[in-house]
Structure formats: structure tokens, C-alpha cells
Amino acid sequence: MLYFSIMIEIKDLHKSYRTGNNSLHVLKGINFTVSEGEMVSIMGSSGSGKSTLLNILGILDEADEGTYHLDGTEIKNLNERVAAKYRNKFLGFIFQSFNLINYKSALDNVAMPLYYQGVNRNVRTEKAMHYLEKVGLANWADHLPNELSGGQKQRVAIARALASDPKVLLADEPTGALDTKTSYEVMELIQGINDEGKTILVVTHEDDIAHMTKRIVNLQDGIILDDSEVKQVRAKDAMKKALAHV
């Protein structure tokens, strides 16, 4: 085939929330396509529907109208069983609040998706250790989440998202709870993952973070206001610049 394979394709996506008698129309017809290997940021003011969109892409929520294809598979009317299977197979999540299981060690948290893939214990541990090394936390494998800093927690979460070797990485404000320096370190890690070919979507409302991706989608009032490729700022360079200013 002549074109890059299309990873995400949504057409005319609508989503409303009903609270009591009121209905809040959040997504009002979203169309966009993400090819394999892209790194896209979704921006927009608070309440513009960024998380809603990302949740739908992550099969954590369902659209009211429109179609969604993930790696060629139509995502529609899935029951929880199939949804769980697809999430496990296709997707890795990185949340603003990390969402680690607090009574499990860093290593066990990373191994979790593999457990649900039915990978046996030894392989699980080995693979999880590999990803912990990749995020630079090999020495912290036995620590519980509350013994880690915010940046370290997010690294564990990234390792966990990578562990199941997903097609797409979805990150909702991955740097929202982190200071600038730590944010850049996390973005550097995410850029590295993208360099290896993984498709990544990042929701953010910070301009500098958005410019570390290769394409910015701007949401406003439930529609895409602007969707354009940008020149990627390497997090490493941004860091140097920031440090020079101090």
C-alpha cells in the first residue's frame, strides 16, 4: 500500500451528557484521522471536550453518533468484555493522576496489563523490568507508589502503558500534576517512545507541551477549530533553554 496505515479514524462524532433534564452537547461532530507513528496533541480550553474525546478514543466511553475505527476495527456497541479486550490489546493509558494501584510495587503495577493478557509470571516480571529500565526506574522496582515522586509515578504509569505493547498511547494531561522540569523529562520519554514508532495522542492545555508533539488539534465548543502539523520541539532542547534562563 502506498499510504501509511491509518490508526484512528473518526467521522462525525457526537457526544452529549445528560444530567437530569439538561443535556450538554459536548462533541458536535468531530472528524479526524491519525496515522501510525504520529504524535498528536489535543488542545482547547477547559470544558471544551478534550477528555471526553480521548475517553471515547480509549474505549472508556462511547459516542452517541458517528463512527470510530481503531486500527481498522470498528468500535461500536461493544460489551464490557470485548471493550476490555480491545483496551488491553490496542491501547495504553497515561492519566494526569497516575492511577497506580497503591498497594502494589512499581514492578507489579507495570506487570498488571500483562497479567490480564495471560502472560505467565516470570515473563511478566522480566518484561515489566525491561520497561522500568526504559523509563529509568530499575532501581525503584520494589517501591510502592507512595514512596515515589510525581515524576517517578508518571514514569511508572508510562512503563505500564507500554508493557502491553499497545498500538496507541493515550495520555490525558500527563504533565498536569508535574512541575516544568519534571514535565519536560516526562515529555522527553514520551518523545523517545514516539521516535520508536508508537502512535501517541496527548491531551494538554499547555502550549509548550503541545509544541513537543508533531501535530496540534484545537478543540473549541465541541468542534475542531484548527488541525495543523507543527515543528516538534525536542524536550531536551526546551530543558536546556529553560535551565539557561534560570
Binding site: 483496551r87 493509558f93 490480564y116
Partner: peptide, 16 residues
């Protein structure tokens, strides 16, 4: 509940 949410997001089947 939250732990269950995390497990499900990661791919846990309802039955599991």
C-alpha cells in the same frame, strides 16, 4: 472501586 477502574482500563475482563 478505583482500583477496579484501573484494572479495567488496563484490560481486566468484568468476569475476572
Amino acid at each position: 472501586t478505583k482500583e477496579i477502574g484501573i484494572r479495567k482500563a488496563i484490560g481486566a475482563q468484568p468476569l475476572s
